[in-house]
Design a protein around this nucleic acid. Structure first.
Lengths: 287, 287
DNA sequence: GCCCTGTGATACCTGCCGGGTATCACCGCG
DNA sequence: CGCGGTGATACCCGGCAGGTATCACAGGGC
């Protein structure tokens, strides 16, 4: 039973994502006919119909959906193998110079915790160099999977820990951030229902995987935008306690009674075997 | 940044495992020179030295160790993609005919639980066909990773749940299985220390990944052997409560007070999105 | 009805590279 | 000092990945 080449997976994923041979070929930097042929060969070798060719583009079959998911995972794994091997390059003597670690953190989250973690780890004897990779919301999982990062700080319930090993580091509640002058800002506590149904303050919407869910609130993509919009009295946000550190004078934070608690985890690929990583996790567990 | 082809990974893993170009080439069904060249190209492309060539075979460098691990994972992912896609082949209409599920179970473990699970799931409306794949101890993880199975029953602490999603189904204690006539068989309970240090009954040794750890006990590879050796008064075994179902008249089971509890989990690849799998997990959770 | 546009499929050619055979360079060993 | 066994090198060849040109077909204007 012959095994799939990553080239074939790359091609298929491109076609499946673009839903269009021509655009996929362009993205891959090649002509369309060889792409067509490669996909046909792939279908023949798998003995499965992956795409439904219509006039006007293509659509995935059930098997195609499966291969899209599994193929992405396999491509990530191959990319991770290359990246991690390259980074391990210098350290030839086994057990000798421990490599650097790349730690993925959502930008502007967990200041405090991150600082404590880095300090605690740096104090350990023989600790490796830690490179902090700041990323967007939810990007940590992809970074870990494709090897751009070795370890990440993740925040449930926003991040999914599926497929990773992890250790919980801290739990915090959530607060509603309101314009200082707003009537609700005077309250001692609020419920989620309170902030969800304020007609003059629709909840801001973050992009998930590059697209925005439909809704009335403004579309934002960074914390500065959010802060400004709140200060202008245009929106309200629900954020973890620790976000209080970046609030403005024009903001008021009110604790939410029924918001799910936010748990910060340190997470890493389940099969990881790095000494440096083990040390970092140990340091984290002692916090 | 060019991506590794699975062909290259296959070659490297073979060489790394055999620690010998000639044998690796034979295993791959090719001649040695192209293999040599392929590995050199790989090293050049990664900019990393993977192998230390000695007279008398080769040894892995640190980077080579990394690539061996990561490469195996990537190869498993690619194999899984192919297998799962092939199996999804018939079901073309999305959401339509749900595919079969392959459930990996350690042979002869969890009779009772397995029976209940299969019955409960079969009673669900629209349940898929379940193929039970009996495997050796610890083999479930590999089967899930490379796509030969979709879901497995695993038993901690023997199986590692790292990298999988799982749900605990049942917990049980462990018992020592002794020859019926043995002095210890008269005891009400035993401790691990009791059975570990019986000079005339050395603990039997199971192979892990095909090799046996050194020790005084007999080397066994299936339960029948074990049962026979215990009946002959040559060894003692520590097994979960539920294993009592296959004991012989010549055996006596004595509860262990300090053995770690055995938890049976249902586990599946973290990124899985199959409807049928979701149904099975739901049925399992209701047990 | 017509052609025009844009889709994926086909035909055919070419150059590269993966793989084979023969051989070399090295080294430990009897 | 040959001999066996290691991986590396030299060289050749065939297949296949990729390119160009073109086709078949379906809509959509006019």
């Amino acid at each position: 039973m012959d095994t799939l080449e990553t080239r074939e997976l790359r091609y298929f994923v491109a076609v499946a994502e673009e839903q269009h041979f021509g655009r996929a070929a362009e993205r891959l930097g090649m002509a369309q006919p060889p792409l067509s042929r490669a996909i046909q060969q792939l279908e023949r070798r798998l003995g499965v119909c992956l795409l439904q060719r219509n006039r006007r583009g293509v659509r995935l079959t059930g098997a195609g959906e499966v291969l899209l998911h599994e193929g992405r995972a396999a491509l990530d794994a191959a990319a991770a193998a290359a990246r991690r091997t390259r980074r391990a390059g210098g350290a030839d003597s086994p057990g000798g110079p421990r490599g650097r670690l790349v730690l993925a953190v959502k930008a502007a989250a967990s200041h405090e915790l991150l600082r404590k973690l880095l300090d605690a780890y740096a104090a350990e004897p023989g600790s490796a160099e830690i490179e902090v990779l700041l990323c967007g919301v939810g990007e940590q999982e992809e970074l870990l999977r494709d090897g751009r990062a070795d370890v990440a700080l993740m925040h449930t319930p926003w991040n999914s820990l599926a497929g990773f090993d992890s250790e919980a580091l801290a739990t915090e509640g959530q607060v509603a951030v309101l314009p200082a002058g707003h009537p609700l800002a005077a309250r001692e506590t609020l419920s989620l229902a309170d902030v969800r149904d304020v007609p003059d303050l629709p909840l801001a919407r973050w992009p998930t995987h590059g697209t925005y869910a439909p809704g009335p609130g403004p579309e934002i993509h960074n914390q500065t935008q959010l802060a400004q919009l709140i200060a202008l009295g245009r929106t309200v946000a629900v954020v973890p306690d620790s976000a209080r550190s970046w609030l403005w004078a024009e903001h008021t934070a009110v604790p939410l009674t029924d918001a799910p608690p936010v748990v910060t985890h340190i997470a890493w690929p389940a099969h990881s075997r790095s000494l440096a990583l083990a040390g970092l996790v140990r340091a984290a567990a002692r916090l």
